[in-house]
Design a protein around this nucleic acid. Structure first.
Lengths: 221, 221
DNA sequence: CGTCGATGGGACGGCTGCGTACCGACGTCC
DNA sequence: GGACGTCGGTACGCAGCCGTCCCATCGACG
Protein backbone atom coordinates (compact mmCIF):
# COMPACT_ATOMS: atom_id res chain seq x y z
CA UNK A 1 0.00 0.00 0.00
CA UNK A 2 2.91 2.26 0.58
CA UNK A 3 3.69 2.41 -3.13
CA UNK A 4 0.10 2.97 -4.19
CA UNK A 5 -0.27 5.74 -1.68
CA UNK A 6 2.84 7.41 -2.90
CA UNK A 7 1.58 7.20 -6.46
CA UNK A 8 -1.70 8.75 -5.41
CA UNK A 9 0.17 11.41 -3.55
CA UNK A 10 2.17 12.19 -6.62
CA UNK A 11 -0.99 12.45 -8.71
CA UNK A 12 -2.58 14.71 -6.18
CA UNK A 13 0.47 16.85 -6.24
CA UNK A 14 0.43 17.11 -10.00
CA UNK A 15 -3.17 18.17 -10.03
CA UNK A 16 -2.70 20.57 -7.21
CA UNK A 17 0.34 21.98 -8.95
CA UNK A 18 -1.52 22.79 -12.13
CA UNK A 19 -4.24 24.47 -10.11
CA UNK A 20 -1.63 26.36 -8.22
CA UNK A 21 -0.06 27.49 -11.46
CA UNK A 22 -3.38 28.65 -12.83
CA UNK A 23 -4.05 30.71 -9.74
CA UNK A 24 -0.68 31.93 -8.72
CA UNK A 25 0.72 32.63 -12.15
CA UNK A 26 -2.06 34.97 -13.21
CA UNK A 27 -4.40 33.82 -15.95
CA UNK A 28 -3.28 34.35 -19.54
CA UNK A 29 -4.63 37.58 -20.92
CA UNK A 30 -3.95 40.26 -23.47
CA UNK A 31 -2.00 39.11 -26.47
CA UNK A 32 -1.29 35.91 -24.60
CA UNK A 33 -4.54 34.25 -25.53
CA UNK A 34 -5.45 32.16 -28.62
CA UNK A 35 -6.83 34.31 -31.39
CA UNK A 36 -10.25 33.13 -32.46
CA UNK A 37 -9.95 34.31 -36.04
CA UNK A 38 -6.80 32.27 -36.52
CA UNK A 39 -8.47 29.20 -35.08
CA UNK A 40 -11.31 29.62 -37.56
CA UNK A 41 -8.90 30.06 -40.43
CA UNK A 42 -7.14 26.84 -39.49
CA UNK A 43 -10.38 24.92 -39.18
CA UNK A 44 -11.47 26.01 -42.63
CA UNK A 45 -8.08 25.24 -44.06
CA UNK A 46 -8.17 21.74 -42.65
CA UNK A 47 -11.59 21.02 -44.10
CA UNK A 48 -10.59 22.27 -47.53
CA UNK A 49 -7.25 20.56 -47.51
CA UNK A 50 -8.91 17.36 -46.38
CA UNK A 51 -11.29 17.58 -49.29
CA UNK A 52 -8.54 18.26 -51.78
CA UNK A 53 -5.83 15.83 -50.82
CA UNK A 54 -7.44 13.50 -48.30
CA UNK A 55 -6.31 12.48 -44.87
CA UNK A 56 -3.43 10.40 -46.11
CA UNK A 57 -1.73 13.29 -47.82
CA UNK A 58 -2.82 15.98 -45.41
CA UNK A 59 0.19 17.95 -44.24
CA UNK A 60 0.36 20.41 -41.41
CA UNK A 61 2.56 22.54 -43.56
CA UNK A 62 -0.07 22.79 -46.29
CA UNK A 63 -2.75 23.61 -43.76
CA UNK A 64 -0.62 26.37 -42.33
CA UNK A 65 0.08 27.78 -45.77
CA UNK A 66 -3.57 27.72 -46.75
CA UNK A 67 -4.67 29.31 -43.50
CA UNK A 68 -1.94 31.90 -43.77
CA UNK A 69 -0.48 31.09 -40.38
CA UNK A 70 2.64 29.49 -39.00
CA UNK A 71 2.82 25.84 -38.08
CA UNK A 72 3.26 26.82 -34.48
CA UNK A 73 -0.23 28.24 -34.39
CA UNK A 74 -1.48 24.78 -35.21
CA UNK A 75 0.72 22.81 -32.87
CA UNK A 76 -0.27 25.15 -30.07
CA UNK A 77 -3.90 24.15 -30.49
CA UNK A 78 -3.58 20.45 -31.20
CA UNK A 79 -0.95 17.91 -30.36
CA UNK A 80 -0.65 16.32 -33.76
CA UNK A 81 -2.31 15.79 -37.09
CA UNK A 82 -4.68 13.02 -36.05
CA UNK A 83 -5.90 14.82 -32.96
CA UNK A 84 -6.51 17.96 -34.97
CA UNK A 85 -8.47 16.27 -37.71
CA UNK A 86 -10.57 14.26 -35.29
CA UNK A 87 -11.46 17.27 -33.20
CA UNK A 88 -12.39 19.41 -36.18
CA UNK A 89 -14.31 16.76 -38.05
CA UNK A 90 -16.26 15.48 -35.10
CA UNK A 91 -17.10 19.05 -34.22
CA UNK A 92 -18.56 19.66 -37.65
CA UNK A 93 -20.32 16.30 -37.74
CA UNK A 94 -21.57 16.80 -34.21
CA UNK A 95 -23.87 19.66 -35.08
CA UNK A 96 -26.74 19.22 -37.48
CA UNK A 97 -29.52 16.84 -38.29
CA UNK A 98 -32.79 17.22 -36.43
CA UNK A 99 -34.70 14.00 -36.03
CA UNK A 100 -37.71 14.09 -38.32
CA UNK A 101 -41.33 13.84 -37.36
CA UNK A 102 -43.62 14.93 -40.12
CA UNK A 103 -46.54 12.89 -38.87
CA UNK A 104 -46.41 10.16 -41.51
CA UNK A 105 -43.88 7.52 -42.37
CA UNK A 106 -43.81 8.54 -46.01
CA UNK A 107 -43.16 12.13 -44.99
CA UNK A 108 -40.39 11.19 -42.58
CA UNK A 109 -38.72 8.98 -45.15
CA UNK A 110 -38.86 11.62 -47.84
CA UNK A 111 -37.47 14.24 -45.48
CA UNK A 112 -34.57 12.05 -44.41
CA UNK A 113 -33.64 11.13 -47.93
CA UNK A 114 -33.76 14.71 -49.07
CA UNK A 115 -31.59 15.78 -46.16
CA UNK A 116 -29.08 13.04 -46.86
CA UNK A 117 -29.04 13.84 -50.54
CA UNK A 118 -28.36 17.46 -49.78
CA UNK A 119 -25.60 16.54 -47.35
CA UNK A 120 -23.90 14.12 -49.71
CA UNK A 121 -24.08 16.58 -52.56
CA UNK A 122 -22.18 19.14 -50.56
CA UNK A 123 -18.86 19.57 -52.32
CA UNK A 124 -16.67 19.22 -49.27
CA UNK A 125 -18.70 16.62 -47.41
CA UNK A 126 -18.88 14.33 -50.39
CA UNK A 127 -15.10 14.33 -50.56
CA UNK A 128 -14.26 14.14 -46.91
CA UNK A 129 -16.72 11.50 -45.79
CA UNK A 130 -15.69 8.68 -48.14
CA UNK A 131 -12.08 9.54 -47.54
CA UNK A 132 -12.34 9.31 -43.79
CA UNK A 133 -14.45 6.20 -44.07
CA UNK A 134 -11.70 4.52 -46.03
CA UNK A 135 -9.13 5.78 -43.59
CA UNK A 136 -11.19 4.48 -40.69
CA UNK A 137 -10.65 0.98 -41.97
CA UNK A 138 -6.99 1.40 -41.07
CA UNK A 139 -6.97 3.76 -38.16
CA UNK A 140 -8.93 2.66 -35.07
CA UNK A 141 -8.94 6.16 -33.68
CA UNK A 142 -10.66 7.54 -36.75
CA UNK A 143 -13.02 4.61 -36.82
CA UNK A 144 -14.07 5.21 -33.24
CA UNK A 145 -14.61 8.89 -33.77
CA UNK A 146 -16.68 8.40 -36.89
CA UNK A 147 -18.64 5.72 -35.12
CA UNK A 148 -19.53 8.18 -32.42
CA UNK A 149 -20.22 11.04 -34.77
CA UNK A 150 -22.19 9.23 -37.44
CA UNK A 151 -23.16 5.69 -36.67
CA UNK A 152 -24.66 6.39 -33.29
CA UNK A 153 -26.66 9.22 -34.71
CA UNK A 154 -27.80 7.15 -37.67
CA UNK A 155 -29.05 4.45 -35.41
CA UNK A 156 -30.98 6.97 -33.39
CA UNK A 157 -32.66 8.27 -36.52
CA UNK A 158 -33.38 4.75 -37.72
CA UNK A 159 -34.84 3.70 -34.41
CA UNK A 160 -37.02 6.76 -34.20
CA UNK A 161 -38.22 6.57 -37.78
CA UNK A 162 -39.09 2.91 -37.56
CA UNK A 163 -40.52 3.22 -34.06
CA UNK A 164 -42.87 6.00 -35.08
CA UNK A 165 -43.97 4.17 -38.20
CA UNK A 166 -44.62 0.95 -36.32
CA UNK A 167 -46.62 2.65 -33.61
CA UNK A 168 -48.67 4.34 -36.32
CA UNK A 169 -49.23 0.99 -37.98
CA UNK A 170 -47.47 2.06 -41.16
CA UNK A 171 -44.80 -0.61 -40.81
CA UNK A 172 -45.24 -4.14 -39.52
CA UNK A 173 -44.06 -4.88 -36.04
CA UNK A 174 -40.63 -6.42 -35.87
CA UNK A 175 -39.23 -4.22 -38.62
CA UNK A 176 -35.48 -4.14 -38.21
CA UNK A 177 -34.22 -0.57 -37.78
CA UNK A 178 -30.74 -1.60 -38.79
CA UNK A 179 -31.81 -2.94 -42.13
CA UNK A 180 -33.93 0.15 -42.52
CA UNK A 181 -30.85 2.33 -42.18
CA UNK A 182 -28.99 0.19 -44.69
CA UNK A 183 -31.80 0.46 -47.19
CA UNK A 184 -32.22 4.18 -46.75
CA UNK A 185 -28.61 5.31 -46.69
CA UNK A 186 -27.05 2.61 -48.82
CA UNK A 187 -28.47 3.51 -52.21
CA UNK A 188 -28.03 7.23 -51.62
CA UNK A 189 -24.47 6.83 -50.46
CA UNK A 190 -23.67 4.51 -53.32
CA UNK A 191 -25.11 6.87 -55.87
CA UNK A 192 -23.71 10.12 -54.57
CA UNK A 193 -20.48 9.23 -52.82
CA UNK A 194 -19.31 6.18 -54.75
CA UNK A 195 -20.80 6.11 -58.20
CA UNK A 196 -20.96 9.92 -58.11
CA UNK A 197 -23.98 10.26 -60.30
CA UNK A 198 -26.38 13.04 -59.35
CA UNK A 199 -29.90 12.20 -58.25
CA UNK A 200 -32.68 14.35 -59.64
CA UNK A 201 -36.07 14.77 -58.01
CA UNK A 202 -37.73 12.23 -60.24
CA UNK A 203 -35.10 9.64 -59.51
CA UNK A 204 -35.29 10.40 -55.80
CA UNK A 205 -39.04 9.88 -55.80
CA UNK A 206 -38.64 6.48 -57.37
CA UNK A 207 -35.98 5.61 -54.89
CA UNK A 208 -38.15 6.68 -51.98
CA UNK A 209 -41.04 4.58 -53.21
CA UNK A 210 -38.75 1.60 -53.65
CA UNK A 211 -37.23 1.95 -50.21
CA UNK A 212 -40.66 2.29 -48.65
CA UNK A 213 -41.75 -0.91 -50.33
CA UNK A 214 -38.59 -2.63 -49.21
CA UNK A 215 -39.11 -1.62 -45.60
CA UNK A 216 -42.61 -2.99 -45.57
CA UNK A 217 -41.35 -6.53 -46.12
CA UNK A 218 -38.35 -6.59 -43.80
CA UNK A 219 -40.42 -7.93 -40.94
CA UNK A 220 -41.79 -10.94 -42.80
CA UNK A 221 -38.79 -13.16 -42.28
CA UNK B 1 -5.65 14.71 -97.77
CA UNK B 2 -1.97 15.29 -98.20
CA UNK B 3 -1.53 16.03 -94.49
CA UNK B 4 -3.60 13.09 -93.32
CA UNK B 5 -1.66 10.79 -95.56
CA UNK B 6 1.60 12.08 -94.25
CA UNK B 7 0.42 11.55 -90.69
CA UNK B 8 -0.57 8.01 -91.53
CA UNK B 9 2.77 7.50 -93.21
CA UNK B 10 4.53 8.71 -90.10
CA UNK B 11 2.52 6.35 -87.94
CA UNK B 12 3.34 3.47 -90.19
CA UNK B 13 6.96 4.42 -89.97
CA UNK B 14 6.91 4.49 -86.21
CA UNK B 15 5.41 1.08 -86.03
CA UNK B 16 7.77 -0.24 -88.65
CA UNK B 17 10.69 1.23 -86.78
CA UNK B 18 9.90 -0.58 -83.57
CA UNK B 19 9.52 -3.79 -85.48
CA UNK B 20 12.84 -3.11 -87.15
CA UNK B 21 14.49 -2.56 -83.79
CA UNK B 22 13.05 -5.75 -82.42
CA UNK B 23 14.38 -7.71 -85.36
CA UNK B 24 17.67 -6.03 -86.14
CA UNK B 25 18.88 -5.48 -82.62
CA UNK B 26 18.31 -9.06 -81.60
CA UNK B 27 15.46 -9.68 -79.21
CA UNK B 28 16.21 -9.35 -75.49
CA UNK B 29 17.09 -12.72 -74.06
CA UNK B 30 18.91 -14.40 -71.22
CA UNK B 31 19.19 -12.35 -68.10
CA UNK B 32 18.03 -9.37 -70.10
CA UNK B 33 14.35 -10.13 -69.80
CA UNK B 34 11.91 -9.11 -67.08
CA UNK B 35 11.71 -11.77 -64.43
CA UNK B 36 8.19 -12.98 -63.89
CA UNK B 37 8.61 -13.84 -60.25
CA UNK B 38 9.74 -10.32 -59.47
CA UNK B 39 6.78 -8.86 -61.31
CA UNK B 40 4.47 -11.05 -59.25
CA UNK B 41 6.18 -10.04 -56.03
CA UNK B 42 5.71 -6.38 -56.91
CA UNK B 43 2.06 -6.83 -57.79
CA UNK B 44 1.37 -8.52 -54.48
CA UNK B 45 3.32 -5.91 -52.61
CA UNK B 46 1.33 -3.13 -54.24
CA UNK B 47 -1.99 -4.71 -53.34
CA UNK B 48 -0.97 -5.27 -49.74
CA UNK B 49 0.60 -1.88 -49.36
CA UNK B 50 -2.47 -0.30 -50.90
CA UNK B 51 -4.64 -2.07 -48.37
CA UNK B 52 -2.46 -1.06 -45.46
CA UNK B 53 -1.66 2.57 -46.12
CA UNK B 54 -3.96 3.56 -48.97
CA UNK B 55 -3.20 5.23 -52.25
CA UNK B 56 -2.41 8.56 -50.71
CA UNK B 57 0.43 7.22 -48.61
CA UNK B 58 1.58 4.56 -51.01
CA UNK B 59 5.29 4.90 -51.64
CA UNK B 60 7.35 3.18 -54.28
CA UNK B 61 10.04 2.73 -51.71
CA UNK B 62 7.77 0.81 -49.38
CA UNK B 63 6.52 -1.35 -52.23
CA UNK B 64 10.09 -2.17 -53.22
CA UNK B 65 10.99 -3.01 -49.62
CA UNK B 66 7.99 -5.24 -49.20
CA UNK B 67 8.59 -7.02 -52.47
CA UNK B 68 12.25 -7.38 -51.67
CA UNK B 69 13.37 -5.71 -54.89
CA UNK B 70 15.03 -2.48 -55.90
CA UNK B 71 13.06 0.55 -56.94
CA UNK B 72 14.51 0.24 -60.38
CA UNK B 73 12.70 -3.03 -60.88
CA UNK B 74 9.49 -1.09 -60.42
CA UNK B 75 10.32 1.91 -62.54
CA UNK B 76 11.38 -0.40 -65.32
CA UNK B 77 7.90 -1.86 -65.47
CA UNK B 78 5.78 1.22 -64.94
CA UNK B 79 6.41 4.89 -65.52
CA UNK B 80 5.15 6.16 -62.19
CA UNK B 81 3.03 5.41 -59.18
CA UNK B 82 -0.32 6.20 -60.71
CA UNK B 83 0.31 4.18 -63.83
CA UNK B 84 1.45 1.23 -61.77
CA UNK B 85 -1.53 1.24 -59.46
CA UNK B 86 -4.01 1.66 -62.26
CA UNK B 87 -2.56 -1.17 -64.28
CA UNK B 88 -2.43 -3.55 -61.36
CA UNK B 89 -5.81 -2.72 -59.96
CA UNK B 90 -7.68 -2.76 -63.22
CA UNK B 91 -6.02 -6.02 -64.05
CA UNK B 92 -7.31 -7.56 -60.84
CA UNK B 93 -10.73 -5.98 -61.21
CA UNK B 94 -10.88 -6.97 -64.86
CA UNK B 95 -11.07 -10.67 -64.21
CA UNK B 96 -13.96 -12.20 -62.33
CA UNK B 97 -17.68 -11.99 -62.12
CA UNK B 98 -19.71 -14.18 -64.42
CA UNK B 99 -23.08 -12.76 -65.32
CA UNK B 100 -25.74 -14.74 -63.49
CA UNK B 101 -28.57 -16.69 -65.03
CA UNK B 102 -30.10 -19.09 -62.58
CA UNK B 103 -33.44 -19.17 -64.36
CA UNK B 104 -35.38 -17.05 -61.90
CA UNK B 105 -35.12 -13.45 -60.81
CA UNK B 106 -35.02 -14.43 -57.16
CA UNK B 107 -32.19 -16.82 -57.86
CA UNK B 108 -30.22 -14.28 -59.87
CA UNK B 109 -30.65 -11.66 -57.20
CA UNK B 110 -29.58 -13.98 -54.43
CA UNK B 111 -26.55 -15.07 -56.39
CA UNK B 112 -25.44 -11.55 -57.13
CA UNK B 113 -25.82 -10.43 -53.56
CA UNK B 114 -23.90 -13.40 -52.26
CA UNK B 115 -21.11 -12.78 -54.73
CA UNK B 116 -20.92 -9.15 -53.81
CA UNK B 117 -20.99 -9.94 -50.12
CA UNK B 118 -18.14 -12.35 -50.55
CA UNK B 119 -16.15 -9.83 -52.58
CA UNK B 120 -16.67 -7.00 -50.12
CA UNK B 121 -15.76 -9.20 -47.19
CA UNK B 122 -12.40 -9.97 -48.72
CA UNK B 123 -9.83 -8.40 -46.44
CA UNK B 124 -7.87 -6.63 -49.12
CA UNK B 125 -10.73 -5.72 -51.42
CA UNK B 126 -12.73 -4.15 -48.63
CA UNK B 127 -9.81 -1.86 -47.88
CA UNK B 128 -8.71 -1.02 -51.37
CA UNK B 129 -12.05 -0.37 -52.99
CA UNK B 130 -13.32 2.36 -50.67
CA UNK B 131 -9.90 3.90 -50.65
CA UNK B 132 -9.66 4.12 -54.42
CA UNK B 133 -13.25 5.29 -54.61
CA UNK B 134 -12.41 8.18 -52.35
CA UNK B 135 -9.29 8.89 -54.32
CA UNK B 136 -11.25 8.81 -57.54
CA UNK B 137 -13.16 11.83 -56.36
CA UNK B 138 -9.93 13.79 -56.71
CA UNK B 139 -8.04 12.07 -59.45
CA UNK B 140 -9.76 11.91 -62.84
CA UNK B 141 -7.43 9.17 -64.05
CA UNK B 142 -8.39 6.89 -61.20
CA UNK B 143 -12.02 7.78 -61.63
CA UNK B 144 -11.93 6.86 -65.28
CA UNK B 145 -10.20 3.57 -64.66
CA UNK B 146 -12.58 2.55 -61.91
CA UNK B 147 -15.46 3.58 -64.09
CA UNK B 148 -14.24 1.23 -66.78
CA UNK B 149 -13.40 -1.58 -64.41
CA UNK B 150 -16.45 -1.48 -62.19
CA UNK B 151 -19.21 0.79 -63.30
CA UNK B 152 -19.43 -0.49 -66.82
CA UNK B 153 -19.50 -4.03 -65.60
CA UNK B 154 -22.09 -3.21 -62.96
CA UNK B 155 -24.36 -1.71 -65.53
CA UNK B 156 -24.02 -4.77 -67.70
CA UNK B 157 -25.03 -6.98 -64.81
CA UNK B 158 -27.90 -4.68 -63.92
CA UNK B 159 -29.17 -4.55 -67.48
CA UNK B 160 -28.99 -8.29 -67.85
CA UNK B 161 -30.59 -9.06 -64.51
CA UNK B 162 -33.45 -6.66 -65.08
CA UNK B 163 -33.84 -7.61 -68.72
CA UNK B 164 -34.14 -11.28 -67.94
CA UNK B 165 -36.58 -10.66 -65.12
CA UNK B 166 -38.76 -8.39 -67.25
CA UNK B 167 -38.87 -10.84 -70.13
CA UNK B 168 -39.87 -13.54 -67.68
CA UNK B 169 -42.59 -11.28 -66.31
CA UNK B 170 -41.05 -11.23 -62.86
CA UNK B 171 -40.52 -7.50 -62.92
CA UNK B 172 -42.84 -4.90 -64.44
CA UNK B 173 -41.83 -3.40 -67.72
CA UNK B 174 -40.06 -0.09 -67.44
CA UNK B 175 -38.05 -1.13 -64.43
CA UNK B 176 -35.00 1.10 -64.25
CA UNK B 177 -31.80 -0.95 -64.29
CA UNK B 178 -29.85 1.91 -62.81
CA UNK B 179 -32.03 2.16 -59.75
CA UNK B 180 -31.86 -1.59 -59.52
CA UNK B 181 -28.09 -1.44 -59.26
CA UNK B 182 -28.32 1.26 -56.62
CA UNK B 183 -30.75 -0.80 -54.57
CA UNK B 184 -28.73 -3.98 -54.86
CA UNK B 185 -25.23 -2.70 -54.30
CA UNK B 186 -25.98 0.29 -52.11
CA UNK B 187 -27.06 -1.48 -48.93
CA UNK B 188 -24.36 -4.13 -49.25
CA UNK B 189 -21.65 -1.58 -49.87
CA UNK B 190 -22.88 0.58 -47.06
CA UNK B 191 -22.96 -2.29 -44.64
CA UNK B 192 -19.70 -3.96 -45.53
CA UNK B 193 -17.45 -1.20 -46.80
CA UNK B 194 -18.69 1.82 -44.88
CA UNK B 195 -20.42 0.81 -41.72
CA UNK B 196 -18.23 -2.30 -41.63
CA UNK B 197 -20.73 -4.54 -39.92
CA UNK B 198 -20.77 -8.16 -41.06
CA UNK B 199 -23.86 -9.56 -42.73
CA UNK B 200 -24.94 -13.03 -41.66
CA UNK B 201 -27.09 -15.32 -43.78
CA UNK B 202 -30.27 -14.41 -41.98
CA UNK B 203 -29.66 -10.74 -42.45
CA UNK B 204 -28.77 -11.25 -46.09
CA UNK B 205 -32.02 -13.11 -46.71
CA UNK B 206 -34.00 -10.25 -45.25
CA UNK B 207 -32.05 -7.82 -47.35
CA UNK B 208 -32.67 -9.83 -50.50
CA UNK B 209 -36.38 -9.96 -49.84
CA UNK B 210 -36.45 -6.24 -49.21
CA UNK B 211 -34.53 -5.42 -52.36
CA UNK B 212 -36.78 -7.68 -54.41
CA UNK B 213 -39.82 -5.87 -53.07
CA UNK B 214 -38.20 -2.55 -53.80
CA UNK B 215 -37.45 -3.47 -57.39
CA UNK B 216 -41.02 -4.49 -58.03
CA UNK B 217 -42.26 -0.93 -57.48
CA UNK B 218 -39.60 1.04 -59.32
CA UNK B 219 -41.60 0.98 -62.52
CA UNK B 220 -44.78 2.40 -61.04
CA UNK B 221 -44.58 6.17 -61.21
C1' DC C 1 32.07 -20.70 -75.39
C1' DG C 2 32.38 -15.73 -75.86
C1' DT C 3 29.43 -11.84 -76.88
C1' DC C 4 25.72 -8.98 -76.07
C1' DG C 5 22.46 -6.23 -73.82
C1' DA C 6 19.02 -5.42 -70.54
C1' DT C 7 18.45 -6.60 -65.86
C1' DG C 8 18.29 -5.70 -60.64
C1' DG C 9 20.44 -3.23 -56.98
C1' DG C 10 22.75 0.42 -54.59
C1' DA C 11 23.71 5.24 -54.19
C1' DC C 12 22.80 10.03 -54.97
C1' DG C 13 20.70 14.86 -55.23
C1' DG C 14 16.73 17.41 -54.47
C1' DC C 15 12.56 18.10 -52.17
C1' DT C 16 8.94 18.11 -48.75
C1' DG C 17 7.16 17.44 -44.28
C1' DC C 18 7.39 16.82 -39.19
C1' DG C 19 7.97 18.66 -34.74
C1' DT C 20 10.88 21.90 -31.90
C1' DA C 21 13.48 25.96 -30.41
C1' DC C 22 14.03 30.60 -30.43
C1' DC C 23 12.36 35.69 -30.90
C1' DG C 24 10.11 39.97 -31.22
C1' DA C 25 5.24 41.70 -30.72
C1' DC C 26 1.35 42.56 -28.16
C1' DG C 27 -2.39 43.64 -24.93
C1' DT C 28 -4.20 43.06 -20.17
C1' DC C 29 -3.36 43.27 -15.25
C1' DC C 30 -1.72 45.53 -11.20
C1' DG D 1 2.40 52.94 -17.42
C1' DG D 2 5.45 49.08 -16.69
C1' DA D 3 5.82 44.19 -16.29
C1' DC D 4 4.30 39.93 -17.52
C1' DG D 5 3.58 35.90 -20.14
C1' DT D 6 1.85 33.79 -24.17
C1' DC D 7 1.10 34.72 -28.76
C1' DG D 8 2.45 33.85 -33.92
C1' DG D 9 6.34 33.44 -37.19
C1' DT D 10 10.90 32.09 -38.79
C1' DA D 11 14.66 28.91 -38.72
C1' DC D 12 16.45 24.39 -37.85
C1' DG D 13 17.66 19.32 -37.73
C1' DC D 14 16.02 15.11 -39.05
C1' DA D 15 13.77 11.67 -41.85
C1' DG D 16 11.50 9.69 -45.81
C1' DC D 17 10.56 9.60 -50.63
C1' DC D 18 11.04 10.49 -55.62
C1' DG D 19 13.19 9.52 -59.87
C1' DT D 20 17.77 8.77 -62.06
C1' DC D 21 22.43 7.23 -62.84
C1' DC D 22 25.87 3.74 -62.76
C1' DC D 23 27.63 -0.91 -62.49
C1' DA D 24 28.27 -5.84 -61.80
C1' DT D 25 25.49 -9.86 -62.95
C1' DC D 26 23.38 -13.09 -65.72
C1' DG D 27 21.84 -16.21 -69.39
C1' DA D 28 20.20 -17.05 -74.39
C1' DC D 29 22.03 -16.45 -78.90
C1' DG D 30 25.12 -17.58 -82.60
Amino acid sequence: MRVAEEAAERNRNVLAYSDYVAIAKRAPAGAAVLRGDITVAIRNAVMNELAEVGYGRLSIEAVARRAGVGKTAIYRRWGNKLEMVLEIVSDVAGRSVPLPDTGTFAGDLQLIMMIVRRALQHRIASQIIPDLMAEAARNPQIAETLQKALHTHQQAVGDKLVGQAVSRGELPEGTDPQIAVDLILGPLYWRLAVSRTPIDDDHLDKLIAAVAAALRVTATQ
